[in-house]
Design a protein around this nucleic acid. Sequence first.
DNA 1: GCCAACGTTGGC
DNA 2: GCCAACGTTGGC
Length: 144
Amino acid sequence: MPTWLFKTEPSEFPFAKLAAAAGGTMWDGVANPTALIHLRSCAVGDHVYIYHTASEKAIVGLAVVTKAAYPDPARPELNDRAEPRFAVVNLRRVMDVKAPLTLAAIKADPRSAEFDLLRQSRLSVMPVPPALAKIIDSLTGLKR
DNA sequence: GCCAACGTTGGC
DNA sequence: GCCAACGTTGGC
């Protein structure tokens, strides 16, 4: 199953604020067109690494998609059309990583050279290639 | 706080 | 439809 990486600013919406209950929490605020394309590709059951930006710059946890993309209910004026401008998904918190995986550590590993996280620093929703997901699982101590 | 690397906007 | 000017993100 596909794995994604979502970025969030920990002072705005930290990983810990994601609900661990079945329905999860709405993940909104994605405006970048490329990020929205990825967001619309998320399916229920897909796994999502949560990455904290700003001072942390590390993968801190794992979440799962509990509801696929739908129009942001807070932006009806922009979503009342065939192609909604803003999409959101629901995410449920699954588990913390055993060890946060820092951007510096990811950069230092030549196997992540093609990762969007390094190639396009402003992208907030991106796919994680399966081979890289395996590496990240091992480096963070995630058992899933 | 700075600035590179994007996106977006609006005049033409 | 182009592109200059402006705005935003996020690493440093």
